[in-house]
Design a binder for these strands. Structure first.
Lengths: 326, 326
DNA sequence: CTGTTAGCGCGTTCAC
DNA sequence: GTGAACGCGCTAACAG
């Protein structure tokens, strides 16, 4: 099922077929219909390799997740993001090349490979870091990219991001309005930009320092225990993901502290997990599916050249549940 | 950075470059080294489109997840599987095309598209179903495929699978050895082949009927409540995933039933979730990362033609924790 | 044995 | 509406 075969079957030239299939002028309405019908019958689809070869696009965008294999745990965020991305991509029948790697160095290698092999037309970059080698590399390569979770500290890449600082402020305000004045923050990986934003906003709002972790349930448990057995235990704790918050609720129970009577807990990011605990966890909800969708749309615009600069996504909203009170 | 440029820079013909780069005879050792050095300097990589065009391979395999957007919840299985797949693929520097779709019909459309566009050389098919349209379609298309979780009921596709029946038997035996004789099974989607295998094995081992669900926490909670408030409540419950088991432990607590004193619980599939509960959940552990790795290797062999037929993966092993006793 | 020229694959595009 | 060249790498067939 090639253009050549269609041309033969329809009794026209290959270029006529190409024009007809791409809705371009140069063929009569009659011939166009004839060609389209033959192509339909033969279930013709363009060979993506040949298309890409003609200097055209690869018809795919790339997404790399850099994280050690051992920490590939519960990740509700991921599948939602990918799903949202694809809901936007399906419109332009663009494919997604997806790769999980161990670290950022491996990630940069993938970008080099994909771009030099012309496997992708652009990439979505997640988890911006302080001192991130990726924006520089991508700019140098000329590989179109959109930073998800940015804005890019180096100002190199366009980005889409939610305001973590304002979200943190809204959480602290909620807790303060409930009467809490000793609030703790169990943060995630310190090298991530959004972790820094949350830590700074938390410091501004409370004057207190955050504790950084690796996002694991183990860390959530340990830090919670340390916080609650300190001389002046906090009356409220904010966790940077749902896993740690769930572990925290368990740690509190193990220490005989009641939630929310003795201590209130808030999870950053909602998931079914947050509704499985007793009490259910107050959580910062964001529509990750829609976020992924918007990110992909934006990347397409960036590749077209119809958009540049940063795009702020809607603010995540706090959904109060049983774990906050007083 | 094309072959042409390298040829010019090295002062040789394009075919000499091609031979050198592909480690084929036809060039002197001296010339080969020269060419390789120039290619290295220019950071040359073959254009995958051009390569694929020459009747060669696309250099990618495909994976489609069919599930409605709403049920895209916590899915530890997924990221581990993908990660394992890629650990095997990286050896042959094969890429992964990944897609999430709403249903099996959309999935079959993706297969048609990918194959006619020559985007992939083969696909991994997950969640075999009773009355599954995919094996027939893939065989008809001639798209190489490996069924993950199968054996294929229609006997059309080669597969890799774990023995769900024996695994179920081992769970029931464990519970029986603890003295349980009223065991319930909260199964997953009835249209999945492995669900049927588990249900049949459960029936053979206990004589009892299973309850099918949609894997959601909501279903786990509801069914657990129904089971425990029945006239003759079970003393042990086996859940087909971790989410439902965690929901079940919550439902039991809400009814004032102690775990494991009043009722023992077992989760099929381990995840950090199973260690976040009190007591921790006894779980059927499988090495999903290794499973994905073996699946990808097997698919590569199937595409090479060096392997056919089914491959049985290692049996998942039960890891007793606090939620089973008596 | 070393190296070259020619042509293929498939869709696009430009001159005619 | 057509023929021909192009993009890029691979692979016969062929010459030194």
């Amino acid at each position: 099922m090639t253009i050549r075969e269609i041309a033969q079957r329809a009794g026209v030239s290959e270029s006529a077929v190409s024009f007809a299939l791409n809705n371009r002028p140069g063929v009569s309405e009659y011939t166009r219909r004839l060609i389209l019908q033959v192509a339909e019958e033969m279930k013709w689809r363009p060979n993506s390799a040949a298309k890409a070869l003609g200097g055209a696009k690869a018809g795919a965008i790339g997404l790399v997740f850099a994280r050690p294999a051992e920490t590939l745990g519960v990740e509700p965020f991921f599948l939602r993001l990918v799903s949202g991305i694809q809901s936007a991509l399906s419109a332009s029948s663009t494919a997604l090349m997806f790769q999980v790697v161990e670290n950022v160095e491996a990630e940069t290698e993938i970008y080099r490979r994909w771009w030099s092999e012309r496997r992708v037309d652009g990439v979505l970059v997640v988890d911006p870091r302080t001192d991130d080698p990726r924006p520089g590399l991508l700019a140098e390569l000329g590989l179109p990219a959109l930073l998800i979770g940015g804005p890019d500290p180096t100002g190199t890449l366009p980005s889409i991001w939610a305001d973590d600082a304002r979200a943190m402020t809204s959480i602290v305000e909620h807790l303060t309005s409930l009467g809490h004045n000793r609030i703790a923050h169990v943060a995630g990986l310190p090298e991530l930009v959004h972790t820094q934003h949350r830590i700074e906003a938390f410091h501004r709002a409370t004057g207190a320092q955050s504790v950084t972790t690796d996002y694991s349930d183990e860390a959530g448990r340990r830090v919670t225990r340390e916080l609650l057995t300190a001389a002046e235990p906090p009356t409220a704790i904010v966790y940077d993901n749902d896993i740690m918050a769930v572990a925290g609720i368990g740690a509190a129970a193990a220490l005989g502290r009641a939630v929310p009577a003795d201590v209130s807990l808030v999870a950053w990011d909602d998931s079914p997990l947050c509704r499985l605990t007793h009490p259910m966890l107050t959580a910062l909800v964001r529509d990750t599916y829609a976020f992924g969708r918007r990110a992909a749309q934006r990347l397409v615009e960036v590749m077209d050249g119809t958009a540049t600069g940063d795009l702020e996504d809607e603010l995540p909203r706090l959904t109060p549940r049983g774990s906050t009170q007083e």
